[in-house]
Amino acid sequence: MSEFIQLVIAGLTTGSFYALVALGYTMVYGIVRLINFAHGDIFMVGAFLGWTVLTTLAATHMPWGIGLLIALILSMILTGGLGVAVERFAYQPLLSAPPLSILITALGVSLALENGVLLIFGPGFNTYPQLIGSAGFVLGGAHITFIQVGIIILSFLLMAGLYLFVHHTFIGTAMRALAVDRDAARLMGINVERVIQITFFLGSSLAAVAGVMEGLYYTEINFFMGFIVGLRAFTAAVLGGIGNIPGAMAGGLLIGLLEAFSAGYISSRWTDVIVFLVLIGTLVVKPTGLFGERVVERM
């Protein structure tokens, strides 16, 4: 039982990363029908920006809570801005081009970001400051760390906030309208380009939060970390039904749990095999994903 609880908590923790990153894939796809394959690397840049802020602040002996808050906020803003810049300069000129051009561009952006970070921070691992270490408490025989609890709570708050934003604000409603019918949205006076930029900003800043939290959790980051997280988060988005926001959240948590259970009960070598088998199985049985019955509702 204690092992089970341990695995659930670990699964929800990594699942939170996947869910936050998957939201970026799914929101962008819902609105511009683009699989942003550079999104995993946006997440990676978020982790590096957070690391830069945290290590800079570490010298000032500021209380770690405030330092972490500043790191999170700065990383969200800067990474969000990076997402908007990528959209503006790499994707927007190609929005009416054949889908293959934009896909190749996304791969190009991914390589550019990875190699840019490689150039600046080097090929090795950068160690995140250990703010609270592995302190925690025991629940049902399982050792649960405060970092895990913090990550899970923060992710759920962000996801709830995003859901409220999308359903109860004008910009959010405009995003959903845009996902359904771009021309009709224009006729309502919606500045479509602006809403697309806001979508990229939100998706990228959520990925930045995941990046910083991943750095705190695993303590080490490097330029290639976005690849596997990006792949699993993309899987999560497809599993939940791409374009569907609650689907991305559920898909992310599910992939995290699956990863934890397969690592705990079978072997971590089999994790990717099992994750992708589940994905393939889902797509065979239900090609629209778990939440795919609402095909018309893409957000």
């Binding site: 309208a177 949205a185 006729l187």
Partner: peptide, 10 residues
């Protein structure tokens, strides 16, 4: 517009 183009899921 032609065919009304409502936001059907809203």
């Amino acid at each position: 517009p032609e065919r009304r183009r409502l936001f059907a899921p809203l």
